[in-house]
Design a protein around this nucleic acid. Structure first.
Length: 591
RNA sequence: GGGCUCUUAGCUCAGUUGGAUAGAGCACCUCCCUUCUAAGGAGGCGGUCGCAGGUUCGAAUCCUGCAGGGCUCACCA
C-alpha cells in the first residue's frame, strides 16, 4: 500500500471515530516548500460532510494520525491545510526498495493485453524531411516509447504516401530536366535529389502559367491547362494502368528517396517495426466501400460517387469514392486501418501522429470505422500536434522555404561542438568520440526543445535565434547526468550495502521527486504527452543540482553518508537516463 | 458563416481530480570556482493568468458571452 493510500485510510478512520461520519475521498497534495511537512491533506472538501472549523478538524485528524501512523512524525495546520511531516525512515525504506532497479518506474508489458500501433512520420516520397516532420517523428517515437514503458505492447509504423500526382510531378521534372542524374552521380542524398525536381517542376509550371496568361488565358485556365500539369496527370494515369516505363521510373526514384529517408531516420534516432505503403492499401479500402454500401453505411449517388452521411453525428457528408471509381484519401485510410488489424490481430488500438490540420479528417475516419462495425475503432487516437511555423510563415517545400531536417541536426551538432571546444573539458577524447558527443548534445537540445512543449500548441521556430543550451534544455539535463557519472567513476568503494541514516533535507526532496516517476510515466502514457516526461526530468535535475551544490557527495563526513549519497546520485542518473530514453535522447558520460 | 483549438512575466513555456502568497528558463542586475565538471548554484527585477459575467468557502483551472491568433469545412493528400 502506498503512503497516500495508508494516510487516506487513516484520515477516514479519524473522521469515523471522532465524528462518526464517513468520508468518501481524501484530497492530498505535496506540501508547499514554505511550510513544514511533506504531505498535505486539504480539509476544505471535508466540510461538506463534517460541519465545523477546518482548523479544528485538521488538528483532530493530525493528532489521530500522529497517534496511529508510524511514519507520521509531526503535523501543523495552516488554515484548511493539514501539513504532515513524514519520518526519514519511510523515505529511507522507499529508497532502499528502488535503489537497485535499473528501469525504475517502467512497467513490463502484459502480453495478454492488446497491443497498440503507433503511426508516425508518414511522409510523401517527393521531398526530404523538414522541421515539421521532425516534430512528428519525435512525438510519435516518444509516445510509442512512453506507452511501452507504461506496460503496453507497441508496434511503430508509418504509412508511406508513395503514389499520387505530387509524386508524378518530381518524376516528370526529373525525366525532362534531370539528364539522368542519380544520387551516385551527384553525391546528393536521394530524397534531396528528388525534392529538387519537385521544386523544379513548380518553377517550370509557374513559367508556363505566366506564358499562358500572357496569351490571354485566365489564371484558372492557365493553371488547369499548363502542358506540364497535363503531362503529370497523364503520367499518373499511366502509372495506375501499370505502364512499365512509368512504374520503373517510379520504383527507381522512390528507392532513392527511401534510402535518403532511412539516413534521416537514423540521424534522428527513430525507427519502425513495420511499414505500410499507400499503393498497397487503397484497394482494401475500396473493398470496404462496397461492403459499406451493402450494409447501408454508405450511399451511392446517381453519378456513381459514394458518400457517408454523418450529418446526424453533427458532421458533414463525406466522399469515400469518386464517381470514376477511384479511391480518395479517406478510402486508403480505411483500408490501411483494416489491413493493420488483419496483419497484427493482437492490436487493439492505434495512435495516429498527424498534424492538427487533419483533426476533422480523423474525427470522420474514426466515426466511419465505428459505423463499419469494428470494435477496435473505439480505441483510435489522433495524436494531433500544432504546426511548426517560421517567422516568415508556413514552411512550403515547393517554394523551398523549409528548415531541412538533416541540415538542422548538423547545425545543432556544430553549435554543441563550438560550445564544447570553448569549455575545453574533453581532454583525452578522440575526434570521433567528440563528434559523437556533439551530435548527442545537439540532438538533445533539439529534441528537448520540441518535446517539452505541449503537443497541441504550435511552435514558432526562428532559425536565427539558436536553440538554447542553458536553463530548461536538453544539454542542461545531459550535463547533470555527466557530472554524476564523473562522481560514480571516482567512487571506488562498495555501494551495494543498505544504508539507513537521517536524511539531509535535499536528500529527502530528491527521494520525494524520485517517488513521483512511475506515476508520471502513467500520466504521460494516458495523455500521450512527452512534455510531462520532459518537465518531470527538469524538476528532478534542478532538485539534484541544488543537492549537488549544497552538500559534498564524495566529501561527506563519514563512509555511510558518502555511500548513501553515491547511491542516491546513481539512482537519479539512472532515472534521468530512462526518462530521456522515453524522449529518444541519449545521455553522455562526459561533456 | 459553422466546427475544433490556442491566449499565463519583455521572450519561450510549466501550472491535470478547482486549494495556501501563480512557477521555471532566457534576457537584465548582484553574488559563488585553491572543494565531486560554473553547459552549474543562491538571490533580485518582472504578472489585472486575453476581456466580461457566472458557479463555489475558494477559479489561471469549471460554465456562458466577447475579442484576437491558428486549423478546418475539396470527387487534393
Amino acid at each position: 500500500m502506498s503512503l497516500q493510500e495508508t494516510l487516506a485510510q487513516q484520515v477516514k478512520q479519524a473522521i469515523l471515530t471522532t465524528f462518526n461520519l464517513e468520508l468518501e475521498t481524501v484530497e492530498f497534495q505535496a506540501t508547499r516548500k514554505e511550510f513544514a511537512g511533506d504531505v498535505t491533506v486539504v480539509i476544505f472538501p471535508m466540510l461538506r460532510v463534517v460541519k465545523g472549523n477546518p482548523v479544528q478538524i485538521g488538528e483532530t485528524i493530525g493528532a489521530y494520525l500522529l497517534e496511529n501512523v508510524d511514519v507520521v512524525k509531526a503535523f501543523n495546520v495552516v488554515k484548511g491545510f493539514l501539513n504532515i511531516e513524514i519520518s526519514d525512515s519511510y523515505y529511507s525504506n522507499f529508497f532502499n526498495g528502488i535503489k537497485d532497479e535499473t528501469t525504475y518506474g517502467f512497467v513490463s508489458a502484459n502480453l495478454a493485453d492488446k497491443a497498440v500501433m503507433v503511426e508516425y512520420s508518414s511522409p510523401n516520397t517527393n521531398k526530404p524531411l523538414h522541421l515539421g516532420h521532425v516534430r512528428n517523428n519525435l512525438l510519435g517515437y516518444s509516445v510509442a516509447e512512453i506507452l511501452k514503458a507504461s506496460g503496453k505492447k507497441v508496434y511503430k509504423t508509418q504509412i508511406i504516401n508513395d503514389r499520387g500526382i505530387h509524386i508524378c510531378k518530381s518524376m516528370l521534372a526529373w525525366k525532362r530536366y534531370g539528364n539522368r542524374e542519380t544520387p551516385e552521380s551527384t553525391g546528393l542524398k536521394g530524397d534531396k535529389l528528388v525534392g529538387n525536381y519537385y521544386v523544379k517542376f513548380d518553377q517550370e509550371y509557374k513559367k508556363e502559367i505566366e506564358t499562358l496568361m500572357a496569351s490571354g488565358n485566365t489564371e484558372e485556365e492557365a493553371k488547369k491547362n499548363a502542358p506540364l500539369l497535363l503531362e503529370a496527370q497523364n503520367m499518373l494515369q499511366k502509372w495506375e494502368a501499370g505502364d512499365e516505363e512509368v512504374v520503373a521510373l517510379w520504383k527507381m526514384m522512390n528507392s532513392w528517396v527511401y534510402k535518403g529517408f532511412n539516413e534521416s531516420y537514423k540521424n534522428l534516432g527513430v525507427d519502425f517495426d513495420t511499414l505500410y505503403y499507400e499503393s498497397d492499401t487503397y484497394i482494401l479500402g475500396k473493398e470496404f466501400v462496397t461492403e459499406g454500401l451493402k450494409t447501408g453505411v454508405f450511399v451511392q449517388e446517381a453519378d456513381g460517387s459514394v458518400w457517408c452521411d454523418l450529418t446526424e453525428d453533427g458532421l458533414d457528408k463525406k466522399i469515400v469514392q469518386r464517381s470514376d471509381g477511384t479511391a480518395v484519401y479517406m478510402t486508403q485510410d480505411i483500408g490501411t486501418a483494416i489491413q493493420r488489424i488483419k496483419d497484427f490481430p493482437d492490436v487493439g488500438g492505434m495512435v495516429y501522429t498527424v498534424g492538427n490540420e487533419q483533426d476533422y479528417h480523423f474525427q470522420v475516419l474514426f466515426l466511419i470505422l465505428k459505423k463499419l462495425g469494428f470494435e477496435w475503432a473505439k480505441n483510435l487516437y489522433h495524436l494531433s500536434y500544432g504546426m511548426v511555423d517560421l517567422p516568415s510563415g508556413k514552411m512550403k517545400s515547393r517554394e523551398g522555404t523549409v528548415v531541412d531536417a538533416d541540415d538542422l541536426i548538423d547545425e545543432m551538432a556544430s553549435t554543441a561542438g563550438e560550445i564544447s571546444e570553448e569549455l575545453g573539458k574533453l581532454d583525452g577524447y578522440s575526434d570521433d568520440e567528440k563528434e559523437a558527443l556533439y551530435k548527442t548534445i545537439g540532438l538533445g537540445a533539439l529534441k528537448y526543445y520540441i518535446l517539452k512543449v505541449d503537443p497541441k500548441k504550435r511552435i514558432l521556430f526562428d532559425p536565427k535565434e539558436s536553440i538554447d543550451f542553458q536553463g530548461n534544455t536538453g544539454p542542461f539535463i545531459q550535463y547533470t547526468y555527466a557530472r554524476i557519472q564523473a562522481i560514480l567513476r571516482k567512487a571506488d568503494f562498495d555501494v551495494s550495502v543498505r544504508i539507513d541514516i537521517p536524511l539531509h533535507i535535499k536528500e529527502k526532496e530528491l527521494i520525494k521527486q524520485l517517488e513521483l516517476f512511475p506515476e508520471v510515466i502513467q500520466n504521460a502514457a494516458s495523455q500521450h504527452s512527452p512534455a510531462l516526461i520532459a518537465n518531470y526530468t527538469y524538476d528532478l535535475v534542478k532538485e539534484f543540482n541544488s543537492f549537488y551544490q549544497n552538500v559534498s557527495i564524495l566529501g561527506a563526513d563519514n563512509q555511510e553518508e558518502k555511500t548513501f549519497r553515491v547511491q542516491l546520485s546513481n539512482q537519479v542518473a539512472s532515472t534521468i537516463k530512462n526518462a530521456f530514453s522515453l524522449l529518444g535522447i541519449q545521455v553522455p558520460e562526459r561533456m
